Simulated assay, not measured.
Amino acid sequence: MDLAPILAAGVPLLGWTTHGTYLARRLATARRDPLTGLLTRDGFTTRAERLIRSHPDRTTVLLIDLDDFKTINDTHGHAAGDAVLAATADRLTAWCGSSGLAARLGGDEFAVVVLDSADRLGDLRTALNQPVPVGGLFLNVGASVGASHPAALLLTEALSAADRDMYAHKPGGRTSRRR
């Protein structure tokens, strides 16, 4: 049996398969935030839009911003800030369970798309405002949560509505975006 034709076809096929697998893994890694393990904006957008289209009447879009996060970084260092971000991600993931998606959009800003959450928003606010243990200290963390129900909206419109709602709930009554 002459193996030359099989090898001539098989070796390049194996190379392309390996390369394709490598690229797929890199793409999946790029859609996850390395610090928190949450989806990034790109990974979140595709899945969130699909969830909204599938269940428009049951979907809630949330935008979460950690209050005075810069103070934690400035006072306790970036490692403490990273611990707060990771704890926030864990709390969001636990709260969402299998009925939603959580993402870190950047900095201290997070987004969630979840099904049937109206009666659970208080639990989320309570969880996010729990102190975070860091190096023998318990750091007080505050989070502002804005909600939107995008029955017929696009994800971008729902996030904008949640953003407005979040800033209406910010401590001190700030209702406009920071610059």
Rank of each mutant, 00 (worst) to 15 (best):
P5R: 03
T88N: 11
S148F: 03
H78T: 13
R47F: 00
M166D: 04
V113N: 01
T18D: 09
V134P: 04
L85P: 12
L38Q: 04
D42Q: 13
L105T: 11
T175F: 01
C96E: 02
G43S: 10
A80H: 04
V61G: 00
L63S: 04
D2L: 09
L159F: 04
T175K: 04
G136E: 05
P150V: 05
N73V: 13
L154A: 14
A4G: 13
T175E: 02
L51D: 01
P131Q: 09
A94I: 11
G37L: 13
D42L: 14
T60Y: 03
P171I: 10
R53W: 01
L27A: 12
D57A: 10
A4M: 07
W16I: 15
G136P: 05
G15I: 12
A161D: 10
W16D: 11
T45H: 09
N73Q: 10
G100S: 02
H169F: 04
L7G: 01
D165S: 15
K170G: 08
Q130T: 15
D108C: 09
T40I: 08
G136Q: 07
A168Y: 01
I6N: 00
G146C: 09
A28E: 13
A151F: 05
D165I: 10
D116C: 13
S148A: 15
T59I: 04
L35K: 03
L154W: 02
I6L: 07
A127Q: 11
D2Q: 04
L13V: 14
H19T: 12
L155T: 00
T88W: 07
T126Y: 12
R91E: 15
L27H: 03
I64K: 03
T59P: 00
S176D: 05
T175D: 02
D119N: 13
G136F: 04
V61I: 03
D123R: 05
G136I: 12
G106T: 11
L124P: 06
K70C: 11
S98I: 02
G10A: 06
A168I: 01
G37F: 05
A24T: 15
L121P: 06
V113Y: 00
V113L: 01
R58A: 15
G43H: 06
L13G: 15
A83V: 10
